[in-house]
Nucleic acid binder design. Structure first.
Lengths: 258, 258
DNA sequence: CTGAGGGGAATGGTACTACCAATAAATTCC
DNA sequence: GGAATTTATTGGTAGTACCATTCCCCTCAG
């Protein structure tokens, strides 16, 4: 059964914060705010909108965490240009809350990337192919540095995405890649770099030959291999490790019996 | 050329808000907070963490917009179970900021959904197929109500996603679908509902027959058709329309010459 | 005229207080 | 025993005060 998506009309009393976010959305859409541009100071904005600075700051904080804007003390607030980081935080929570496993993330890649490789073979420009080749070279150069090796591995895949010419999937899967980064790094320590390199070389060659079918096959071959490795590695790992906390949290029961 | 992802180490002074979000992430990860569970009151939490309620509220607001928690006045704050909405807001901003067009969104669908249809033909359970059929029926029943018709159209596709059994892609494309909703509704007013229905029926039949190749073909057929219709319709539309604003915004130049 | 340095103003970050409105549990009343 | 009312709790908003950082302009020395 499908999860109920609740398109319910509960538009009734919206937060001021929510309204503010909608306003910013509109201002961006109509071009009043331009990427890279500077926003008025918080105190001014708050007055303009007729809300308190507290409320405005809540909205701005949301936008900042999502990567829409950047704030710097003593300087100001700026609308970001591209927003690569915009999906990162949400995605991490998604993985936590829905308990999405590395296996599922790899399945998603397996579902999409082969087709994208085929598309890349069809539409890649010479520059795109050169970029893919560069990342391949960077991988070779970083054989001994696992972190670097994996970083360029993922950049290789991003380059393929770029060559396929679809920003939507590219953006989406940059997050998936990022989420898998740590796990892949762990895995790479028990795999011969040359093995990974061989698989990547085949993908590159296929795209370079403009062979759609082979590109698709080679990408599938690589990802199936990676998925199996990853799944085994993941079984030994319980979960992700998050960053430090501020203070100790009183673990009192959240059940105030009133 | 790929966009520079700025992996720069600027971990220096993090916001209290950012730290708090990290704390919540950890609390969720280690199971101290359970989905559906109730969080302590804001005033208590703020004291526990040793931060002001203002700062805490900023963090909570971020989590609420992302769909991680729900807050109700007079009641309390609860950790959500699934977080369906978690990618919606970020995705909308992404589309705005990167200026992603409806055409590109449809291209993304065209890239992914055919393969997913094939996967659905392979892995769909009887219940999955029944669900797809139900949405088909709902479309037929809503021939005259454009909004409803389109809603069930998208639910049909969601059902196929579900049948394919990959939550990651399902979540991602629920956002894409949502973004296209209005535009598709407009388009549907100039298209014979029977035309759309026919294409959907073919997809359903193919999946039901467990024919992967035909499922893929039929989904491609449908989306190519939809894309062309949509692209033509979009050309006449400048942009999206967002919801209302609170008050008039002083359009003063964001260039305080100090 | 040029460059280095200092001071002031503006900005975001945080804390704290006060009050409102909505909610749910406890209480009272019929 | 059930319905209406009261009461305490909770999130929502506004407003103030103060801090640390940053930028800009002005001054002054060379």
């Amino acid at each position: 059964m499908l999860a109920l998506v609740v398109p319910i009309a509960k538009r009734r009393k919206e937060d001021v914060t929510v309204k503010l976010i909608a306003v910013f959305k509109q201002l961006i859409a109509e071009g009043t705010l331009e990427p890279g541009g500077r926003l008025p100071a918080e105190r001014e904005l708050a007055e303009s909108f007729g809300v308190s600075r507290s409320s405005l700051r809540q909205a701005l904080k949301v936008l900042e965490i999502m990567g829409v804007i950047s704030q710097r003390v003593g300087d100001g607030t700026y609308l970001n240009k591209g927003a690569d980081a915009i999906l990162r935080e949400p995605m991490e929570f998604l993985i936590l809350l829905d308990g999405i496993s590395a296996h599922e993330l790899m399945e998603a890649r397996l579902l999409v990337e082969p087709e994208l490789a085929a598309r890349a073979a069809l539409r890649a420009s010479e520059e795109d192919i050169a970029e893919i080749h560069r990342e391949l070279g960077a991988m070779e150069a970083a054989k001994d540095d696992h972190a670097k090796f994996v970083a360029h591995d993922l950049l290789f895949h991003q380059a393929v995405f770029h060559a396929a010419g679809n920003r939507v999937t590219s953006l989406m899967f940059s997050v998936v890649h990022k989420s898998l980064d740590k796990l892949i790094t762990m895995t790479s320590q028990v795999v011969e770099p040359e093995h990974t390199l061989t698989l990547h070389r085949r993908i590159y060659q296929a795209i370079r030959k403009r062979d759609q079918d082979e590109s698709r096959r080679r990408m599938t071959e690589h990802l199936v291999d990676a998925r199996d490795l990853l799944t085994r590695a993941a079984e030994k790992q319980s979960h992700f490790q998050m960053t430090a906390r501020i203070q100790t949290l009183k673990k009192k029961e959240p059940r105030p019996s009133r």
